[in-house]
Design a protein around this nucleic acid. Structure first.
Lengths: 105, 105
DNA sequence: ATCGTTCATCGTAAATATACGATAGGTTAA
DNA sequence: TTAACCTATCGTATATTTACGATGAACGAT
């Protein structure tokens, strides 16, 4: 794409777009829902519920972690992930600023 | 990416991911904010406020329209765009389902 | 120390997204 | 009709994402 122009926008717009990018794959939406419904949050459990290879799931988890939508901590040989509610709510609130005050044309 | 596995998820997860994808570029976030603050919504006005070529802006508008976040209607030689509040609110509500009931691990 | 388990990272191939110039299509004005 | 204008689309180059097998790193148990 030649050269990216993403840096020429405000920090807030870049941040919100980045969070949206992390949400832009059904596997990552599914992962968030799984973490929301399980007390256990081992990677293996997540892999079992997705039609994807372990390496691919790990990549998706990394992307969600990168933008702060989930937290992960090492627990012995396993890794435990969970949703970061604070940032998810922050993203939801940011969407409020996009509502049109005016009706549709 | 070899073969896409996106179809192997639920319709709702695919839909929400698709809306998030439309929001995943700062230019498109900016466009929504511009539409939210202007009574006029001609493409030319939007192009003037972005560091992008007209062809690129048109592409971004097309992507927002594809998922129903904006509506566009031809008004003489110009085209008028506006935010589709209904779908934006629908997306925001869908994010509510992703909050963790459990605290962070 | 060795083995099996769990997960992250590397390397790589293919699909998709981004950006722009050029051009086409449609509208109003002269 | 011609000219000028506005926007969408086409063609194309490059960047990024997606997906997987293979490998590596860390841990617990034997």
């Amino acid at each position: 794409m030649a050269v990216s122009k993403k840096t020429e926008f405000t920090q807030e717009d870049i941040w919100l777009a980045d969070v949206a990018k992390a949400l832009s794959h059904p596997a990552r939406i599914r992962i968030l829902k799984i973490l929301n419904n399980m007390s256990s949050c081992m990677v293996g459990n997540i892999v079992d519920q997705l039609p994807l290879a372990q390496a691919t799931v790990s990549q998706h988890l990394k992307e969600l972690k990168r933008v702060g939508l989930i937290n992960g901590e090492i627990d012995g040989p396993k890794t435990c992930y969970c949703v970061n509610n604070k940032n998810l709510i922050k993203a939801k609130n940011a969407l409020d600023k996009l509502y049109s005050k005016i009706g549709c044309c």
